[in-house]
């Protein structure tokens, strides 16, 4: 799958930039820590737009294309901002056999967005994730950090309602 590159305008703050610079300064002695820097950058900004990747590339002294290549290789890295509420549906085996595919489709239909997309109002984004290890609760999804388990498609409306005030 090709990663979606965000067209949202970048609006990083000076405070975020300061944090990122501190992360880079702490890691620049070792280029192999590139991924760790990218992970922290994503924590700071929520995603890795070109402005952030360029800063990392310059700071770590690696080609920008390398940073981008890494960012498009790993599922965790996102090139578009996440919604205020990120819904992540587990499509691991255990959840899949218990019908998590239908959960995903239901949400996708309700929100009108596909995987790795964000609703125009910025409220929700949707991702499909691999096993989060809560197989005992299959099928599960998470909204932000909150885990919802043993779900049926009927439960979706209630969950969405809870977050869309």
């Amino acid at each position: 799958m090709q990663k979606k590159i965000s067209s949202y305008p970048f609006n990083g703050t000076a405070e975020q930039e300061q944090k990122l610079d501190a992360v880079i300064a702490a890691n620049k002695h070792d280029k192999s820590r590139l991924m760790a820097v990218m992970q922290e950058a994503q924590e700071i900004y929520g995603y890795l737009p070109v402005e952030v990747q360029r800063r990392i590339a310059d700071g770590m002294d690696v080609p920008l294309e390398k940073v981008f290549g890494v960012s498009t290789f790993y599922a965790q890295f996102s090139l578009s901002p996440k919604g205020k509420n990120n819904i992540s549906v587990c499509l691991g085996t255990a959840c899949y056999v218990k019908g998590s595919g239908a959960l995903f489709d239901k949400i996708s239909e309700k929100l009108g967005i596909g995987a790795d997309e964000c609703t125009p109002d910025g409220k929700f984004s949707l991702t499909a994730c691999r096993c989060i290890g809560a197989c005992g609760l299959a099928p599960v999804l998470t909204v932000n950090e909150e885990v919802y388990g043993r779900l049926k498609p009927e439960d979706i409306d209630g969950i969405l309602a809870k977050y869309s005030e």
């Binding site: 192999s32 820590r33 590139l34 991924m35 390398k66 890494v70 290789f73 790993y74 965790q76």
Partner: peptide, 22 residues
């Protein structure tokens, strides 16, 4: 930390990843 790539369970891929690469 890995970043979400199943292939990194393969030992040489894992090492490539630790080294900061795809």
């Amino acid at each position: 930390l890995g970043a979400g790539a199943f292939v990194c369970g393969e030992e040489t891929a894992l090492m490539t990843s630790i080294e900061g690469n795809r």
